[in-house]
Structures are given as C-alpha cells and as structure tokens.
Amino acid sequence: MAGDPSLEDTESYVLQLVKAGADIIELGVPFSDPIADGPVIQQAAERALRAGTTLRKILAMARSLRAKTQVPLVLMTYYNPIFRYGEAAFCRDAMAAGVDGVIVPDMPPDEAGTLRPLAEKAGLDVIFLLAPTSTAKRQVTVARLSHGFIYYVSLTGITGATLMDKAGVGKNVREIRRYTTTPVVVGFGIATPDDARQVAQVADGIIVGSALVKVIAEGDRSTATDRLAAFTRSLKAATLPS
C-alpha cells in the first residue's frame, strides 16, 4: 500500500522488493471505501490516508522510482480516485511517471468504456480481473480486453482471505488459457511460500498483497525493509523450479 506508513518508506520498500526478486511491483492506491479488500488492506489504506497520501503524490513517487529501477509498475486503485483526477489526465500523468499498467478492482470491462480507450491511446495497460464466479462468456471478454496480464482472483472473496481450493485455481487458469496467450497471474490469499509454490505451478505469476502489508505493519519500522526482503526471497525461491 503506497504511503503506509509513508511514501518515502514505500519507495525504499519497492527497491528492496526488486532486489529480493519481485518481477512486477503493484502499488496500492489508498481508498476510503475499499469494497474488495479485507481488513489488512483496509487498515493499511486508512494509515496511508491519514499520512496524507494521494494519487498525485503516488504518481510523483512512481516517477522518482522510475529513475532508479526498470521494474514494471502497476497501480491498483479503485475507480473514484481516477474519475476525480480525470481519466485522460490520469492516463497521461501515469504514463509520464513511468507507470506501466493499472488494475481497477471495482471496474469490470463492462464499465470501462471510457477509461480503456484513453489508456490504450496513452500506452497504459488496463489489467482486468477474472474470478471463480466468472462465466465462460466473461472469461472470453476479459481475456480479449485485458492487456499486460489477466488478474485471476484465486478465491470467491476479498483480499487477505484464506486460499483453500488450489486445485480449482489450476482448473480455472487452464480454462482461461484456452482463450488467450496473455499471461494469467493469480492473486488473493497467497500468504506463504507454500501457497506461492503451489499456485506458481499452474499460473504465469503470483500476486502477493496482504501478506506483504502485514510484514510491514507487524513489527518495527526500522527493520521493515529487512523483513520484506527476507519474505520476498522466500516467496521467490518457492516459485522457481527446484
């Protein structure tokens, strides 16, 4: 979560994550009403907002990061902050800051009629999500419209929930792959190296959010980067073929 506990900290966390083996960085933009998120991300968003974090400041941080690393940067933001910023201005400024893509968890493709063409024109990937409840018809639509990768939500639930049905993930990812060559990356509920190992076997990548936020929040601020690096290395090791 960008800005938890401060944007300066977030910037150093990102550089540490990259060093520890993260291939893509997802920057959470805090929102007051995150309906797709569990308590860990909700509380992180509250902390970030209290610290004065805004989308504008996050874009400034992304620009500063871009000068230091070539790692792909993806923003994860609810729609209202983008709408308020102005869709066209957001796409332009995000591109200029070196952001590569955006995930909007409350904006399915059906509701992306205005943002998608603007993002496409700016060269910003809009990454759509699929869920275990998505119908075959929706799998086809999202597979066609999602750029960069497809975010497969591993479980019927919110971020930070417990991932029980790993076999079901494999089945659904195979299903989606029938319609596309775009990479299918799996997130929600991946909290341990063991989760990472199992999901990485069936997907093109894994997304870890709540577990990292927890590592930051639970413990002393001065050692957060070390804890993050150790945890990320353990996740990365688990995803590599042994």
Binding site: F31, S32, D33, L49, T54, L55, N80, P81, R84, D106
Partner: peptide, 19 residues
C-alpha cells in the same frame, strides 16, 4: 459526481476522490 459502491451519483468527497 463520483462513483461509490457500484453507483455513479452525487457524493460528498474530497479533491482526491476520497469519501
């Protein structure tokens, strides 16, 4: 005008789109 909980409508929000 903004978007909250699946609805586009009039909202009490700040300049950054926080409710």
């Amino acid at each position: 005008v903004g978007v909250l909980q699946g609805t586009m409508t009039y909202l009490l929000q700040d300049d950054d789109g926080q409710i």
